[in-house]
Design a protein around this nucleic acid. Sequence first.
DNA 1: CGCAGTTTTGATGGACCTCAAAGACCGTGG
DNA 2: CCACGGTCTTTGAGGTCCATCAAAACTGCG
Lengths: 249, 249
Amino acid sequence: MTDTSMKIADKKSCENCPIQHSAVCSRCEPDELRRLEEIKYYRSYEAGQPVIWAGDHMEFVASVVSGIAALSQTLEDGRTQMVGLLLPSDFIGRPGRDSAPFDVTAVTDLTICCFRKKPFEALLVSTPHIGQRLLEMTLDELDSARDWMTILGRKTAREKIASLLAIIARRNAALNKEMPGNGMSFELPLTREAMSDYLGLTLETVSRQISALRKAGVIELDGKRRVVVPSYEALLSETGDDVDGGMIA
Amino acid sequence: MTDTSMKIADKKSCENCPIQHSAVCSRCEPDELRRLEEIKYYRSYEAGQPVIWAGDHMEFVASVVSGIAALSQTLEDGRTQMVGLLLPSDFIGRPGRDSAPFDVTAVTDLTICCFRKKPFEALLVSTPHIGQRLLEMTLDELDSARDWMTILGRKTAREKIASLLAIIARRNAALNKEMPGNGMSFELPLTREAMSDYLGLTLETVSRQISALRKAGVIELDGKRRVVVPSYEALLSETGDDVDGGMIA
DNA sequence: CGCAGTTTTGATGGACCTCAAAGACCGTGG
DNA sequence: CCACGGTCTTTGAGGTCCATCAAAACTGCG
């Protein structure tokens, strides 16, 4: 698949890489990094462009360097469900399988760091640090996929929106190495339609529930995309989650 | 937690273990197996009994040896969503985290093979075969969690039921080393309520849709629990899945 | 300005939930 | 043997939340 919107960039060094401390390579020793550098190359995609179609042969695995990608699945009649939201340092692909199980799309402008699959799989066996980090990341992904299942299966439209906002707020705070707090604000990286694909709703319902939360004073909007959270506690109380569940003081 | 319904069985050898070829230990060399045997013990639970509560401290990880366990999550007002269905050889727990993120319950009578967590984590670092197999299993779990998300987010009640029946039919056939085919039959291991927790429905809706599929001739019932599938193709066509999606001939 | 993409708002209907009751199945004990 | 209670399942009636269809408002851009 050659695509005018996709660029293969020049090779860059890992030294200044923004995700070097959290990506799949974060545990690597200098010599392991050097072997990874030999099999890596960068690709960039414009917002909205496809990265991989379900069923495609995959000749690489990759890390998200900057931007956001979505994993999604489509039913026979076109209904689609987003099943993964990939942020910087998240991993794309599956060692040991050569066709992609899901569509991958660039939600925002996106740059990924690709590793040729065959040599990557060899490294996975020969250098344990990569496999250990990948296991850790995959277990984290599995936990958040399971939280997401509860959102999809049991929450009301309003709770779904509040949950999504809380997730983005939390990730955004973590990115800035802060705790989520009152008065925080962030840019919504998703269109209403992408949010509806994430939450199993229609875009109209997403719009209505965002308006409802605004009218209830739980959030404030600055333009269509910028969200201000006056009280993080109030937002959490709208998610339906059992806040102190499992926490025994 | 001491519980009259939970028994700690005598230590058994790995030699006759029914899951030795697919569990987390399936790649181990004889000497690695011996080290695992030193830190293992069995537990059994009756159907319906809790294995772990969310938030509990976990002193072990485990493999399901026989029976079925469910992973589930509960919202503040009691709504529950099943987020994992653990069959023989599936793995319970998370190395590197010491409190359980979800409830684990025995759906049927259940026996698990537990490994003390600390020494297991040490083995994970020292013997690569365990970690490699665990990574593979976790990636598979993640893929099926994502399929499940599409079921929860986008399918109708009827499609959800058909999807669940197709999943059970497929797993059952795999267990008997057969292909799913016409005329196959199987026992439903789940109550209507457990199915509703799995699918994000009410138990009444589950019952109604099973009746509807029966009246439509897609399935036949022998008692409440035994299901006969006259045409596997017909069942698949009810799931809403894009059957040949991604398959390019 | 005019157009395309995104978002908001409104009206209506339907799929599924809620509440309610009765039927089926199974083990226990008289 | 049948009565009895408990659990699971089915069926019914009515209501509600969200999807669908439709159109208008807003935004950015040539």
